[in-house]
Write a protein that binds this DNA or RNA. Structure first.
Length: 270
DNA sequence: CGCTGACCCTGACGGC
DNA sequence: TGCCGTCAGGGTCAGC
């Protein structure tokens, strides 16, 4: 999946095909996702007009008068618009058929994603306790600095904690730390406010650039319109363990933090 | 409250 | 060719 740029690219891809359209039918072929797909969905959604497609963290929210369809793509999920008679591939788990003859199709080999329902006026529990959006004004160096005091865990885990800030996945956490010259295993509480200012700017910059590039660094990602995101993002560290640092030439090193690979340059990052 | 590790699943890839 | 272990973009949850 999709890091935040891929989710945003998906949102932009499907939005124009969904907004203003009425749902005709929901077909759930495989309900066993991260959480079981509620049976309620197939009853509640048909007849509803999709009024907006929004994103909060890496969740996509399809708004209707009755409530919201909450979709997460997990590690391997994708959503695309297809013709209703488009041939099914393996792992095409859900179809949301719209009036006007289009179909929103959910594909997810690993089934770590979810399709959930949230009634109108209710905030889904999964969306409670989420930190600010990384591209919002509320998210800045001061926020990171204050939230990090007395935290002993690695800064990389800290910026990937959704209660601190949402949408910073493994790839962009590695990249933003490299751009900021901070080692991923440094204790979060031992980074100055000045460095957090830089880090917040770099997180914004890295995510913004990725979104502009259509979101992908990943081979199997397919945008909402079904076309792969074109430009492979210029990655400085992620996936480059052992290769020379693009800035100083030293071989990049790798370590594991929270069961996720972290690549960094011993010379450029402290 | 903060942190660690287990866990949910399939598929791709490397080594033998 | 095949089998086996390892790893992969995410996030929640239990337990200390």
């Amino acid at each position: 999946m999709p890091e935040l740029p891929e989710v945003e690219t998906t949102r932009r891809g499907v939005e124009p095909h969904c907004v203003g359209h009425r749902v005709r039918r929901v077909i759930v072929r495989e309900p066993r996702l991260r959480w079981p797909v509620p049976e309620q969905l197939a009853c509640v959604l048909p007849g509803q007009v999709i009024t907006a497609v929004e994103r909060r963290a890496k969740y996509l929210l399809f708004r209707t008068a009755a409530g919201s369809l909450l979709v997460h793509l997990g590690m391997s999920g994708s959503l695309r618009m297809v013709a209703p008679d488009a041939p099914l591939r393996r792992h095409d788990h859900i179809d949301v058929l719209l009036e006007g003859g289009v179909c929103l199709r959910y594909h997810d080999p690993r089934r770590f994603g979810c399709f959930l329902w949230s009634a109108a006026g209710e905030l889904h529990p999964l969306l409670e306790n989420l930190g600010p959006e990384p591209l919002s004004r509320e998210f800045d160096g001061q926020h990171l600095y204050y939230r990090s005091r007395r935290r002993k865990g690695p800064i990389k885990n800290f910026i990937m904690d959704g209660k601190v800030v949402v949408g910073v996945g493994n790839i962009y956490a590695n990249e933003a730390l490299f751009q900021s010259g901070i080692r991923p295993d440094r204790a979060a509480g031992r980074v100055s406010q000045a460095r957090y200012e830089r880090l917040a700017e770099n997180i914004k910059q890295v995510l913004t650039t990725a979104i502009e590039h259509g979101g992908t660094t990943l081979r199997d990602f397919v945008g909402g319109d079904g076309r792969p995101g074109y430009f492979a993002q210029q990655l400085f560290v992620y996936g480059r363990s052992g290769q020379p640092c693009k800035r100083c030439g030293c071989p990049l090193r790798e370590l594991r933090l929270g069961q996720r690979s972290s690549v960094y340059c011993v010379t450029c990052q402290h």
